[in-house]
C-alpha cells in the first residue's frame, strides 16, 4: 500500500470539483502541516543533540583535556592515526587505529551487540507470542515480565553481581543444587565467564523491551487474518512464518534497530558489573575511561566519534539488508 499517493489520488474522483486545483491545494495544505509538525521536533533535537555532538566531534580533532578544556589546540587526525619516522627510518604508528586496546574494545562491543540482540529478539518474540495468546492472568504475567526492564540498571547490575558472587551468590548455590556445575564459579572474575555473565544480565533485562514492542506490532495485526487462516486449516507454525512474521516485521525491525544502537553503546551494566575486565570492556566503557579517568579527553572524544561511525555503518548495513522502508513506498 502507498498511503500518500492513493490519498491524494482519491480526491480528483470527488464529484463536482476541479481535480487539478484541489489536488495541489490539498498537497500544499498537507505539506504545510507536515512542516509545522516537524519543526518543533527538529528544533528540540538540534539543540539537545546537535550541539553536544558537534562539540565532541570537534574535541576529537584537538588535544583537549579536562583540566584545560577551553585552551584546546587543533591536532588534526592525530588522535585517530599518526606516525613518526625515526632516524633509523622505522615508522612508529600511534593513535586510535593503531591501538590494540581500541580494537579489543571494538571486538567486544560487536560480539556483545550481536549476541545479545540475537538472543533478545528470539526470546522476545517467544514472549510476545505467549502474551498475545488469550489466557487467564495475562495481565499479571505481562506486568511480571516488565519487572526486569523496570529495575534501574544501576541496581540490577549490582543485584546480579551479588547473585553471581562466587561465595554467597545464589546462582552458584542454585546451579550446584541442580547439578549443573560441580564447583563454585567466579562468574565476573574469570575472563572466560565475564562476557557470559554480562550477556545473562543483559538478556534478562532487555528481553521485555523487545517483547513489548513486538507485542504492540502483533496487537495491530487484524484478528480476522488469523481467523481466515484457522478456517483454511493452515498449521499454526506455518501461519507464524507466512502471516505473523511478515506483518510484524516493520515493528520487529524498529525494535531490533534500537536495541542494536543501544547494545553498541552498552555502558552502565558493564561499568557496574565488570568495569575493568579486558574481556568485556566495550567502546563506551573505554571512552569513559579516557574522557574522565585518564587525562585524555580528546582521545576519548575520538573514540566516541568512531563509535558513532561504527554504529552508523552497522545501522545502514542492517537497514539495507533488512530492506527497511524510509519513504512511503512499497515494501
Amino acid at each position: 500500500m502507498a498511503p500518500t499517493q492513493s490519498t491524494i489520488q482519491i480526491v480528483p474522483t470527488g464529484p463536482g470539483r476541479h481535480p487539478k486545483r484541489v489536488k495541489s491545494e490539498l498537497m500544499r495544505q498537507r505539506l504545510r502541516a507536515a512542516g509545522w509538525f516537524l519543526v518543533p521536533m527538529l528544533v528540540a533535537l538540534a539543540i539537545v543533540a546537535g550541539w553536544p555532538l558537534l562539540r565532541t566531534i570537534y574535541f576529537s580533532f584537538t588535544n583537549a583535556s579536562l583540566t584545560n578544556l577551553y585552551g584546546a589546540e587543533w591536532a588534526g587526525f592525530k588522535n585517530y592515526l599518526n606516525w613518526t619516522v625515526l632516524k633509523s627510518g622505522r615508522v612508529i604508528w600511534s593513535g586510535l587505529l593503531a591501538d590494540p586496546v581500541w580494537w579489543n574494545a571494538v571486538w567486544n562491543t560487536i560480539r556483545f551487540a550481536v549476541l545479545s540482540v540475537t538472543l533478545e529478539t528470539i526470546l522476545g518474540t517467544v514472549v510476545a507470542l505467549v502474551l498475545n495468546a488469550e489466557f487467564k492472568g495475562r495481565g499479571l504475567v505481562r506486568a511480571a515480565i516488565l519487572i526486569p526492564w523496570a529495575i534501574p540498571t544501576v541496581v540490577s547490575a549490582r543485584m546480579w553481581s551479588w547473585m553471581l558472587n562466587d561465595q554467597f551468590g545464589i546462582i552458584n548455590d542454585l546451579f550446584m543444587m541442580l547439578g549443573l556445575i560441580d564447583h563454585k564459579i567466579a562468574w565476573t572474575a574469570s575472563g572466560d565467564t565475564a562476557m557470559i555473565a554480562v550477556l545473562i544480565v543483559d538478556v534478562w533485562k532487555t528481553t521485555p523491551f523487545m517483547a513489548l514492542l513486538i507485542l504492540a506490532g502483533l496487537q495491530m495485526i487484524p484478528r480476522d487474518i488469523y481467523e481466515a487462516a484457522a478456517i483454511d486449516g493452515v498449521h499454526p507454525i506455518k501461519t507464524f512464518w507466512r502471516v505473523t512474521l511478515p506483518l510484524v516485521r516493520p515493528a520487529l525491525m524498529v525494535a531490533v534497530i534500537f536495541r542494536l544502537l543501544d547494545a553498541m553503546r552498552i555502558f552502565d551494566l558493564i561499568y557496574v558489573l565488570t568495569p575493568n575486565s579486558s574481556q568485556t570492556k566495550t567502546i563506551s566503557v573505554l571512552a569513559r575511561e579516557n574522557l574522565i579517568d585518564f587525562d585524555k579527553f580528546a582521545y576519548g572524544s575520538a573514540q566516541s566519534t568512531m563509535l558513532f561511525l561504527i554504529i552508523a555503518l552497522m545501522t545502514i548495513l542492517y537497514i539495507w539488508l533488512g530492506k527497511v522502508r524510509f519513504d512511503g513506498g512499497d515494501r
Partner: peptide, 16 residues
C-alpha cells in the same frame, strides 16, 4: 584464597 578473589572488592572480602 578462593578463585573468586579476583573479583573481590572490600565488601566481598568482608562478607567471607
Amino acid at each position: 584464597s578462593p578463585p573468586g578473589v579476583l573479583a573481590y572488592q572490600e565488601e566481598e572480602a568482608r562478607g567471607v
